[in-house]
Design a protein around this nucleic acid. Structure first.
Length: 235
DNA sequence: TAGGCCATCTGGTCCT
DNA sequence: AGGACCAGATGGCCTA
């Protein structure tokens, strides 16, 4: 909607009690959604939508509204309104139609975002029986995981080239550390990598670089395991 | 039951 | 003008 096309004169109703649930999840076009999970989320307020009959956009509008399934086009009653009133109805329908389209796009956009998040989850080292990472956990974990891998590469390069010449201010490279495997876990500093709570204050792994030395990366990789509290048991 | 997480709707803003 | 992006609001579900 254009910022200028403010519907504020009539808006208060919609902004308070009359939220419009014109395109509830379950009614979104299945083809675009691809998942049936959405239909599982009930949206009770939907009933409000029908309070005054079908939404304006559900009629014979330009777009095949999902609501049209619930709301077959009504018979055209003889319009007795003025021409102006008719144009208001048309405008209202157009507005609602645009809103529904925008809702659909927004839904798809969020689905794409979630798909990307799932893809990210799939490449992060977790255990099959792990609880699914939340969005924020996934992002933080990925951030720290990338940092840890980067540090490992850096140290590996350093060990090949520097041969015992630690950078000023850096601890000498100790030993290569394999990416944590399901058996090599120690419940050490995973929290600092993974736990959202522990990340609340500092999201930057480089903080630990500055004051902790590079070998922390090795420990970090060795600790790329879920925290005990989040993942009670590792094998 | 409170709190966390999530999906969705919605209006505003920016961009093409 | 229309689409993308964003943030706020709302309500449902789940768990401690």
């Amino acid at each position: 909607m254009s910022p200028k096309t403010d519907c504020s004169p009539g808006a208060p109703a919609s902004s308070t009690g009359e939220r419009y649930y014109g395109a509830p999840a379950g009614e979104a076009s299945p083809s675009s959604l691809g998942t049936g999970s959405l239909s599982a989320s009930p949206s009770p307020p939907r009933s409000r939508l029908q309070a005054g009959g079908c939404p304006a956009g559900a009629g014979p509008g330009r777009f095949p509204s999902p609501d049209s399934r619930q709301c077959p086009p009504k018979k055209q009653k003889a319009r007795r309104g003025r021409t102006k009133a008719k144009s208001e109805v048309v405008l209202s329908r157009q507005k609602r139609s645009r809103r529904m389209k925008a809702n659909d796009r927004e839904r798809n956009r969020m689905h794409n975002l979630n798909s990307a998040l799932d893809a990210l989850r799939s490449v992060l080292p977790t255990f099959p029986d792990d609880a699914k990472l939340t969005k924020i956990e996934t992002l933080r974990f990925a951030h720290n995981y990338i940092w840890a891998l980067t540090e490992t590469l850096r140290m590996a390069d350093h060990s090949l080239l520097g041969v015992g010449q630690p950078e000023p201010g850096r601890e000498p490279f100790r030993q290569p550390v394999e990416l944590a495997s399901p058996g090599s876990l120690s419940p050490c500093e995973w929290d600092s990598l993974y736990s959202p709570g522990s990340q609340a204050g500092s999201l930057s792994p480089t903080d630990s670089l500055e004051d902790g030395g590079a070998y922390q990366a090795a420990d970090t990789l060795a600790c790329l395991r879920p925290s005990p509290h989040a993942f009670p048991e590792f094998v």
